[in-house]
Design a protein around this nucleic acid. Structure first.
Lengths: 181, 181
DNA sequence: TGTACATCAGTGAACGCGCGTTCACTGATGTAC
DNA sequence: TGTACATCAGTGAACGCGCGTTCACTGATGTAC
C-alpha cells in the first residue's frame, strides 16, 4: 500500500494546487508540476501511476479539505436553515482560503479524468443538505439540494473573480431558500 | 471580410459540434475536426486563424441558436413568471435538441480560449431574466438572475446525463422562484 | 470568342514542439546473521 | 561491529506520438480587353 502522506507526494500535490490557481487543470503538465515541486520527472511516476491519477488525487485533496471545514462549522447543529447557512458560508469562505480553487471550480467538470469524481463530490454535498432543506419545508428536498450546490459553486466562481465575498449573491441565495409557509 | 456562412466553414463547425457531443472541447483536435468534415488539414486554416478562434466560433454558434429559441418562445410575452418559465423551458428543451451541448455545458468554462465568451453569454442570459424576476418581486433581481442561469445550466447537465427532462428538478427551480407575497 | 491574368478555397506533406511515459541506474536506509 | 543483501524513493536522459501550424502548390472561377 503506498504511503499517501509521503512528503514528496504531498509536495507534488501542493505544486499542482498552486498551478491550479493560475490555469485550468488541462493546462497543467507533468513538467510544470515537477518543476514547481523541485523533483525529477521520474519522481512523479514513483507516486502516481499516470497524470490522470494525479488529477484525481488533486481533486480529492481539495474536496476533503472543503468538507472538513464544513463539518467543523456545523457539528452539533440541528438540521435546519441555520445549519444550511453555516454549511454554505463555510464552503464559500473555504474557497477563498484554499489553493487551487479556480481550476477546481471552473475546469474540473470538463476534465475527463475527474468528471466522475466531481459528480460524486457534488452528490455528496447535495446529500449533506437534504435534511436541512427538508426541515425548512422544501418538498421534495433532493432536487433543491442539487440546485443549491450549483448556486453555491456559481457564487464561489463570482467571488473568485471579484476576489472578495459577494454579499448580494449570498443574500439572494438565502432569500430564495427561506422557509416557506 | 470573410464569409461566415461559407459552406466549408459551416461543415467544420458542424463537425466540431458533433465531436463536442462525445468529448470535451479540450479533447477535440484540429485533426479530428478535418477528418469529420472530410477536408484537408490546411483547409481548417483557410477559415480560422487558429484553433482558439474555432472554439470561439463554435461556442458563438451554439449560444446564438439557443438564444434564438428563447426569443421565439417569449416574443410578445410581458415580463413576469410566465415569460421566465418559457425562457427556461426553451433553454432546457433546446439543450436536448442541439448538437454539442455536452462539451458546451461541461467544459466550456474551463477552456481558456472561450472562458471569457462563456462568461459573457451567461451575463447575457442573466440580464434577459432581470425584468421577469423584478416583476416577480425579487429585490434586487440581478443576483437572483445569475443564480437562475447557474441552476438552469445544472439542470441541463443532469438532463443530458439522464437523456430526458427531469421534471422534479424543473419543478424545484420554479418553486424556488415563485413570486413572494 | 479567345487569351491572359487575378483571386481564392482547398490540398497535404512537412515542421518543430511539448507532451506523457519509460527505464536503467543511484544512493540512502533497513535487515539478517 | 562488520558484511551482504533487499528495499525503495529519487533521477534524468530518452522514447515515440500527436499536436497546432505553415507553405508551396493546384485548380476552379471570375474579370479585362
Amino acid at each position: 500500500m503506498p504511503d499517501v502522506t509521503h512528503p514528496t507526494r504531498a509536495a507534488l500535490l501542493d505544486a499542482g494546487l498552486t498551478l491550479a490557481d493560475e490555469r485550468s487543470l488541462g493546462a497543467i503538465s507533468v513538467d510544470d508540476v515537477v518543476r514547481h515541486a523541485h523533483v525529477a520527472k521520474g519522481t512523479f511516476y514513483v507516486h502516481f501511476p499516470d497524470r490522470a491519477a494525479f488529477l484525481v488525487a488533486l481533486h480529492a485533496r481539495f474536496h476533503d479539505e472543503l468538507r472538513a471545514r464544513i463539518r467543523a462549522a456545523t457539528t452539533g447543529q440541528p438540521p435546519g436553515a441555520e445549519r444550511l447557512r453555516r454549511s454554505i458560508t463555510a464552503y464559500l469562505d473555504g474557497c477563498h482560503e484554499l489553493a487551487g480553487v479556480k481550476a477546481m471550480l471552473a475546469s474540473a467538470r470538463g476534465e475527463p479524468a475527474i468528471a466522475q469524481a466531481v459528480a460524486a463530490s457534488n452528490d455528496r454535498f447535495a446529500t449533506a443538505g437534504v435534511d436541512d432543506l427538508a426541515a425548512m419545508g422544501h418538498r421534495p428536498p433532493a432536487p433543491v439540494a442539487r440546485l443549491v450546490v450549483a448556486m453555491a459553486a456559481e457564487i464561489a466562481l463570482v467571488e473568485l473573480e471579484r476576489g472578495a465575498p459577494d454579499r448580494a449573491m449570498r443574500r439572494a441565495l438565502f432569500q430564495l431558500l427561506a422557509p416557506r409557509g
